[in-house]
Write a protein that binds this DNA or RNA. Structure first.
Lengths: 213, 213
DNA sequence: GCATAATTCAAACAAACGTTTGAACCAATT
DNA sequence: AATTGGTTCAAACGTTTGTTTGAATTATGC
């Protein structure tokens, strides 16, 4: 089996269906019955493979988030190596931060905007377990990026530094999570499917904001 | 009645409790039983006064959103009047856009961060009725702001213009909705309770980003 | 103070929820 | 061929859900 007609496993089918329905209906709005029906899987399979609905949500997150953050760090290290003993340009640091995330958010074979919409929703969900998982992930990334960022922005006071980092996260999250509204509001002028164009546009905006005044 | 010991009406008590629980648990996670219990009101009162859970959510939104957008437009018009026949500075246009929203998000007597958290959650909820209400509100505001914005950013091509507007919304929404994480991540350096400081910091960042390149 | 309307109340409704159970199935090992 | 361990299945568990009902209560107009 699984040679050419690669039939996805029960676990994967549940993860895919959960990702889609958690994103569309929220973590409490999506029912296990709807999920298992979409996955063409028995209702009890969720508890057999994941233990509970909460653990299922955790698994959905971990599947995408761990590779994403690994890729961010890998990308930053590549820029650092290319820069040698010089410091990395701000544009490159920001690209390493938002590029992988935006590429993931546009890669439909890896959840794409579906997962990003879910992520956007969960950021504001005060469920303790989810919050711990998310902020833990973010702090891991921040730890790696902070030296390069402060080096590229030497004149920025700590207070402004963190605030602007906060604004950065907002722009990035909003762009990842909500990719169709921009098309609507711009009257079709902006194309969120042009991933690299979007990234470049976002990086320019963010660097302008970070360097301001 | 209602002279000094101003006892809030059943309707208002329901709205307040709904706002809090919709924000904390999501629009499907918050149950009418939890809401009516918090409001110290009979379960059937929701259907008597609002018709259904969906209409209740609409009422919760309308109560804050209509005055907010009116205030934004009022503020922009005040800057326009002060500028006379000269064009309004970008900083002032942006302040008129994000200032009222951030002040509302910090005004606990008017829902404050509770309402903003709810708003942040609903932006990503694809429920048709909610989406129509939200984008309708935003377009009303955008119609009023677009001339002043393009005048203040004459060198920006339409595509960049709309993208950066999109990024602006993201930063603003994230700052309004999630006011405690910044304190945590900055290690206490940033104080989201300093509303005017936050606004100024955000305006600086956004103007830098909008003017970039 | 009576009649009429507006509001509140406890109780019940069917439907949907997450979770559990125990038997059935299937692929491999002995 | 029998046995084992992992997996799937239909059915049921007890709660909780949004909503409805009809009577009780309170406020309003005359």
């Amino acid at each position: 089996m699984r040679s050419i007609m690669t039939k996805r496993s029960t676990k994967d089918r549940i993860l895919d269906a959960s990702e889609a329905l958690f994103a569309r209906d929220g973590s409490s709005g999506a029912s296990l019955r709807a999920i298992t029906q979409r996955a063409k899987v028995n209702l009890a399979a969720v508890h057999y493979h994941f233990g509970s609905k909460d653990y299922l949500l955790e698994a959905v997150l971990a599947r995408r988030l761990l590779p994403l953050n690994a890729e961010r760090i890998r990308s930053l290290e590549a820029y650092q190596q290319k820069a040698g003993r010089k410091k990395v340009r701000l544009e490159n640091v920001i690209e390493a931060m938002v590029g992988p995330a935006l590429r993931l958010s546009r890669d439909e074979t890896k959840g794409g905007r579906i997962f990003m919409r879910l992520l956007g929703r969960l950021v504001l969900e005060p469920d303790a377990r989810v919050q711990k998982l998310l902020t833990g992930q973010f702090e891991t990334v921040l730890k790696k990026f902070e030296p390069a960022l402060t080096a590229a922005l030497p004149h920025l006071e700590p207070q402004d530094f963190f605030w602007r980092l906060h604004f950065l996260v907002g722009s990035m999250a909003h762009t990842m999570a909500d990719s169709e509204r921009i098309r609507l509001i711009s009257g079709g002028i902006c194309d969120p499917d042009d991933t690299e164009g979007t990234i470049q546009c976002l990086v320019t905006f963010l660097c302008g904001g970070l360097r301001a005044k």
